[in-house]
Lab assay of single mutants.
Amino acid sequence: MAAGGDHGSPDSYRSPLASRYASPEMCFVFSDRYKFRTWRQLWLWLAEAEQTLGLPITDEQIQEMKSNLENIDFKMAAEEEKRLRHDVMAHVHTFGHCCPKAAGIIHLGATSCYVGDNTDLIILRNALDLLLPKLARVISRLADFAKERASLPTLGFTHFQPAQLTTVGKRCCLWIQDLCMDLQNLKRVRDDLRFRGVKGTTGTQASFLQLFEGDDHKVEQLDKMVTEKAGFKRAFIITGQTYTRKVDIEVLSVLASLGASVHKICTDIRLLANLKEMEEPFEKQQIGSSAMPYKRNPMRSERCCSLARHLMTLVMDPLQTASVQWFERTLDDSANRRICLAEAFLTADTILNTLQNISEGLVVYPKVIERRIRQELPFMATENIIMAMVKAGGSRQDCHEKIRVLSQQAASVVKQEGGDNDLIERIQVDAYFSPIHSQLDHLLDPSSFTGRASQQVQRFLEEEVYPLLKPYESVMKVKAELCL
C-alpha cells in the first residue's frame, strides 16, 4: 500500500493539533497551500530580480507567473513527485505547466533550498508574528487579574506546605514575570531571523556568478533584492546548502521555554482548584465526569500541561538535527523538520489560546482563602504575639514557653481530632496574655502579614508589564474561544 493518505478522510490519521486544537490561522501558515504558494512567490521574486539585473526574462513571463501564483494543481504535483521522487522539481514542473512561456526560467540558477529553506524562514517569521500578540493578550488578562487582587491576602506555599502570606495578585505576578520573559525572547528570536537568500547549491553562489558572467556586484544585488522582497532586513552571508540548523534550535528553545512557563502556571491553577481557592472557567453544560456528576475538573489547565510537556520535548529534535548536518548538509534534517517545526508552533498556539481562555474567566473564592488563612495564621502570628507581650512588660522566655504549650495543644486538636485551630481562643482565655487581649485582632490582621506584596504588584505592572504590552494595544480586544 502506498504511503500517505487522504487526510480529510475519517479513515486516515490526522494530527489532533490540526484537527482538534490549533487555530485556523496557525494551521494555514503550515498548510501545503501556504507552503507551495510561497515557493511560487519566491520563484517570481527571483525572476523579477534577475530581470532587473539584466537576464533575458520578459515582462510577459513575469506576468504569467504572477497570474498563476494561486493556480496550484495539487493532484498534478503529487503525481509528479511520485514520478520524480523530488518535491521541488515536482512543483517546478507543475508551475511550468500553467506558465508555459515562463517554464524555462522558473528556478533559474537556484537549488531546492532556495524555495525550501527560504519558505521555512518566512513561515517561522509569520508563525512567530501570530504567537506574539496571543502571548501579549494572556499577559494582559493576567495583569488585569493581578491588579484587581493585588491586596487580597492568601496563604503562600513553599514545598506545598503553608508559608508566609502573600497576595493573590502577587502570586499571579510570578506567572506574568515568566511570560514577559517569554514574550521578550519570542520577539528577540523573531527579529534575529535572517533570510537564507540566493546562495546556490553549497552556499557559494557559483551558479549565479556564472549567470551574471562573473559580476560579483550583481550577485550581491540579486541576494539583497530577493531578501528585501521577502520582507527581511538581512540575509546570511555564510550558508551551506541550507541555512544553519542552529536557527531551528533557537526558535524551538524559546517555544519550549514558553511551554515550561505555561505548565507551571496551569499546575498552580490545578492545585488551587483542589484547594477550592480558584477555578478555571466551567461552562453551564460542561460535564466533569461521566460517573461523578459533582466533579469540576480543571480540564483546560490539564490540557495545557499535557501539550506543554510535548512542546518542551520537541527542542531535542533540532538539537540532534543540527549535530548531524555533515559538511554542507545531509538530508537527516528533512523529514524531522517537516514534523517538529509545525508541531512546535501548533502546540504553542494551542496552549496560548487555551491559557487566554482560562485567564479571561478565572474565578476566585475569597471566603475559602480566608478560612485557610484562619487555619494557619495563628501559628504564624506567634512571633508577633511574643513581641507584643514583651512590649507590655512580659518575659520573652516565659511567653515563648506559654505559646509553645498552647500551640501544641491547638495542633493536637487540628491533627488528632480534625478540629479547627483554636490557638487564639486559648490565648484569649489565658490570664497571662490579658495585657494584649485587646491587640489580638490587630495582630491577626492578614494584611499585616503580606509585606509589600501589593506595592510590588503595582510597581511591576507599571514599570515592566504595561510598557512591554504597549506595541500590542491594537490587538488586545480579541477574545479566545474554545470549541473543545
Rank of each mutant, 00 (worst) to 15 (best):
I287F: 02
T242H: 14
V364D: 14
I339H: 12
I62R: 02
M76C: 13
S290M: 04
R33E: 07
S301E: 09
A163I: 02
Q177K: 08
Q210H: 08
V219L: 10
P133T: 10
A90P: 04
M312L: 07
I72E: 05
E280Y: 03
L307S: 05
A308M: 04
G419Q: 09
D6L: 10
S207Y: 11
P100R: 09
G231D: 13
R196P: 03
Q241W: 00
G4D: 10
Q397A: 10
Y472L: 13
L53S: 09
A431E: 14
Q458P: 06
S412P: 05
S31C: 08
P162E: 03
P162R: 03
S434T: 12
N68S: 06
V262S: 11
Q177L: 14
V262K: 06
L46C: 07
F449T: 05
A322P: 02
R149A: 07
K134F: 04
F157H: 11
A127K: 00
F195N: 02
Q455R: 12
D216N: 12
I123R: 08
F195D: 02
M65C: 02
I339Y: 14
Y114W: 15
L211F: 08
S261H: 05
D422R: 10
D268R: 00
T227R: 04
K391Q: 09
Q456S: 10
P378T: 09
F433N: 06
V324K: 01
K134E: 11
A308V: 04
Q241G: 01
D192W: 08
G393Y: 04
K101C: 07
A136S: 07
F232K: 00
R188H: 15
L108C: 13
E228R: 11
K477I: 09
S9I: 14
I385Q: 05
D59C: 15
A2H: 11
K35E: 09
P10V: 13
I269H: 03
R171S: 04
A291H: 02
Y466C: 13
S447I: 09
L193A: 09
N297V: 00
F236E: 09
L252F: 11
G361H: 15
I358T: 13
F145I: 04
L468F: 07
D422C: 07
S289H: 00
H217S: 14
K391E: 13
I373A: 08
T242D: 08
R372G: 04
R404V: 11
H107E: 07
R303Y: 03
K264D: 04
E48G: 02
L131K: 10
Q286N: 07
Q177D: 11
M89L: 07
R83L: 10
T239M: 05
F74P: 02
D117E: 06
F345L: 12
K367V: 03
E481A: 14
R426H: 12
Y114M: 07
A102V: 12
P24C: 15
V198Y: 02
V315D: 04
Q397S: 14
G203T: 01
N71W: 12
Q375G: 04
I265Y: 12
T330M: 02
L55S: 05
A308I: 02
R33H: 02
N274H: 15
W45F: 09
A206K: 14
R83A: 10
R337D: 03
A49K: 00
G259Q: 00
V247K: 14
R303I: 09
V429F: 14
G231M: 09
G96I: 06
D420G: 07
R141A: 13
V254Q: 00
G200A: 15
E283T: 15
K415N: 07
N297C: 00
K229D: 07
L53M: 08
C399R: 03
R37Q: 15
L341M: 05
C305Q: 01
E213Y: 12
L42R: 03
A308R: 00
K295F: 00
K101R: 12
G288P: 00
V413W: 10
I369F: 01
T202E: 09
I237D: 05
L222A: 12
L252C: 09
T201E: 00
L179E: 01
G288T: 01
Q458L: 14
T111Y: 00
L469T: 15
I358C: 15
A411K: 14
Y466A: 10
L186N: 11
T227F: 15
E283L: 10
T38A: 02
L444M: 14
E343K: 14
T227H: 13
E462M: 15
M278W: 07
C340R: 02
Q51E: 03
L222W: 03
V368C: 04
L155V: 03
M181S: 13
L346V: 10
L482W: 13
R396V: 09
S306V: 01
E401T: 08
F95V: 08
H442T: 13
A127C: 07
R245T: 03
E328W: 00
R270T: 00
V92I: 14
A308S: 08
K82C: 14
S434A: 13
A410N: 06
I176S: 05
L258G: 06
C180L: 13
R374G: 09
V226Q: 04
F327A: 10
N421Q: 06
L46I: 14
G259V: 01
R374Y: 08
F212K: 06
F28E: 06
A230S: 02
N68M: 05
Y466M: 15
L53Q: 12
F30P: 00
A260V: 01
P10M: 12
L469N: 12
R83V: 10
A392F: 04
E81W: 01
Y114Q: 08
K187N: 08
E280T: 02
L275Q: 06
V138F: 14
D398S: 11
S9R: 12
L258P: 00
F282K: 05
L108M: 11
I403S: 06
D420T: 07
M476D: 15
T350N: 11
V429G: 13
L314S: 07
D120I: 06
F208P: 01
I139H: 05
F212E: 04
Q205P: 02
W45M: 08
N357L: 07
F460K: 00
N357Y: 01
S290W: 02
I369E: 05
L183E: 05
F195K: 02
P133F: 10
H91D: 01
V475E: 14
E417G: 12
G104T: 11
P318D: 01
K134V: 11
T204V: 11
V465P: 01
D333T: 04
F345A: 08
G419S: 10
D120G: 04
E250C: 10
E70C: 00
F282M: 00
N357G: 12
E343S: 07
P435Q: 12
G214M: 04
A308G: 06
T58D: 03
D248Y: 01
P435Y: 07
T202Y: 02
I358L: 12
M26P: 11
Q356K: 07
L275T: 09
R149Y: 15
F236I: 04
G156E: 02
L423K: 05
E220N: 14
F212T: 10
I265P: 00
T119K: 00
R300E: 05
V315M: 15
A49W: 15
K147D: 07
R396P: 07
A2T: 13
I265M: 12
S306Y: 07
G96A: 09
A273K: 00
R83I: 08
I269T: 14
L124M: 14
N336M: 11
Q408N: 15
S407Y: 01
T158M: 04
D422H: 02
A102K: 00
T450P: 00
F460M: 11
D441Q: 14
A411Q: 15
K66C: 07
S253L: 09
L255W: 04
